[in-house]
Nucleic acid binder design. Structure first.
Lengths: 337, 337
DNA sequence: TCCTGAACTGGAAGCGCTTCCAGTATTTCG
DNA sequence: CGAAATACTGGAAGCGCTTCCAGTTCAGGA
């Protein structure tokens, strides 16, 4: 009966008026800043409720020079890289941490040129209070943008090259080494590595871990057999591997997707796993548990990875200077090795 | 040698001054609006380049009352629902469509109360130009918020209850019916359904499709055996099913995850698939191809789903009135049935 | 009682951009 | 060649909020 239908949103002025205070006081009360008496604070609260007032984020952003949002940028030629369930888990963690800090999450899949241009504008216009950057490849144009950025940037996984100031990463070398050592300790002597993209630091580091372990055992490492972190590429590399080295008895894959692909090839070619060939993966995604046989793999705390990345960014936004973080991995043994 | 290091971002005023025009003209030139002579337009462009000017999004948002962002809200008690690769694919599509419209994507995992409160504020404060809403359950509090929202909302998948004004969905009934008919046409006569959550419209609709097909064949449908769309729940329901109906010879699962779980149970209990029990899934995610045996499943165009949802939202934001969309499904036959 | 300082208060100046509108320069046509 | 229409232009008024700062109020102490 009251309420004109298409009414404008109430503004802070109206709240102030209804509460019988000035706009400044109302603003302070809202942000519960000091210098507001109890009485007025309550009057403002009442008015806010009565008018169903909600502050206008844009106005606030303009006045405070803070957007209230953090961006998660995922690089990649091809948006389908994002189909890797790995990222979903990262997002769950990051989202939770940002929620605590009351920041919104902007997701940027920087695949096309257009997408990269938008990210660049995001950086330059300070369209977010900070940026998390993932899945960078060697010579990734996003690296340069991050360099020049005047807003906080944290890297999820070190990029190839010199380590940035702020990042969170996983102990890729240690994880891969442990996995390889496990294979060797079970008597495997011809252990190959199915590598991820070697233009990523994760791909390289995991190969280094494998290599270290093999060398330490006095054996000859295989050269890197490069896949691209997808299941089909794992299957393909495994096929080639079997053709060239039919006597291979262990495979250390740079992630679970490729390990699953290897399992498929082995199944299709009738090689029993682990009897003839043992396989280990990396990530410990759902697929590792579902695979047949279930995958022995290097567990990494992915959700935590996302959470820590976001926390680091929040710290940065708040003017602190957090230190880089390297999360531990842990070998999970299942039937495949 | 020039350039003071921590210089402020250049503003439109400075661009205008450098170009020798007024701010209004500069603004018009920037948004290439009419009423700007060629000469001045070029002068402005030059100044923009020279100062490396980027407009301030908050200021623009405040002045235009448009945020330049669309939100994708995913409901769910538990953030891990988001781990379903389904969502990743939706995001790929939505992200692409929003990029075309030059909108940013905000991702809201509305799991906790806090998360829902933030979404509510997003709605009420018009913190985004529009919202895409997914994975709603019966009596979902987000439904009410969407009701009251004064900003465009499109639903990804109809919610339980009356259909909203704008949504995109998939032909769940038709897909499930086709899958079930396929099983029946291959001579299976005791076909059960492993259902998804029955407090979602997708869960219900897929069961309806199954039911329709079974009834049409003159057989008795199984009651809904409810899982929650996860692999473990599929395995658990399958175990129970085998215990109660050892003679079941076909299973129609409401998604691939649960179908994979069913396959695992069948493998572990030594029932050959499809010889003794045939299994079909729904979704056609990567897991369907990877499963052993590969899963016959109902393909749905998930990326397109996301894209269409975003396109519909963009249309809405632009003042159009798009019509709801129901995307077709298609049965993909592989070895499991 | 008067003075000092702490606690509040609200006016006013922005934050950086869009857009209305009145005014000026340029055409175009009778 | 003058008048009317057209094309540009820039001043100024916002958009809705924060925050500085000068001013006011009110205890408490001398």
């Amino acid at each position: 009966m009251a309420e004109a239908a298409p009414r404008r949103q109430p503004t802070l002025d109206e709240v102030a008026e209804l509460a019988g205070v000035s706009r400044s006081v109302a603003s302070r009360a809202l942000n519960n800043a000091p210098h507001v008496s109890r009485v007025k604070r309550e009057a403002v609260e009442r008015a806010v409720r009565q008018l169903a007032y909600v502050p206008n984020p844009s106005a606030r952003a303009l006045a405070t020079r803070q957007t209230g949002a953090a961006a998660l940028v995922i690089s990649g030629e091809d948006p389908s890289i994002f189909a890797d369930p790995f990222f979903a888990q990262v997002i769950v963690g990051a989202s939770a941490a940002l929620e605590e800090a009351d920041l919104h999450l902007m997701l940027c899949l920087a695949a096309s040129d257009r997408g990269r241009k938008r990210v660049e504008e995001l950086f330059r216009s300070k369209g977010a209070d900070g940026v998390m950057l993932m899945a960078l490849r060697e010579d990734d144009p996003l690296a340069r943008m991050a360099q020049e950025a005047e807003i906080p940037v944290v890297f999820g996984g070190r990029p190839v090259g010199p380590a940035p100031r702020w990042y969170v990463d996983v102990d890729n070398v240690g994880g891969a080494r442990e996995a390889t050592e496990y294979l060797l300790s079970r008597g495997r002597t011809r252990v190959a590595a199915i590598c991820g993209r070697m233009d990523t630091e994760a791909g390289r580091a995991r190969y280094r871990g494998y290599r270290d372990a093999v060398l330490a055992a006095g054996l000859d490492p295989f050269p890197p057999l490069e896949g691209d972190f997808t299941e089909p590429s794992g299957a393909a590399v495994m096929t080639a591997l079997l053709a060239n080295h039919p006597d291979v008895d262990g495979v250390c894959a740079a992630n679970d997707n490729m390990a699953a692909g290897a399992l498929r090839t082995l199944r299709e070619t009738g090689r029993p796993v682990p009897a003839e060939v043992a396989v280990v993966g990396f990530d410990d995604l759902a697929i590792a548990r579902i695979a047949d046989p279930p995958l022995t793999t290097v567990h990494q705390p992915i959700t935590e990875f996302g959470r820590e990345m976001a926390r680091m960014l929040v710290a940065l936004v708040n003017g602190q200077d957090p230190t880089p973080l390297i999360l531990p991995t842990r070998l999970v043994t299942r039937a495949s090795a």
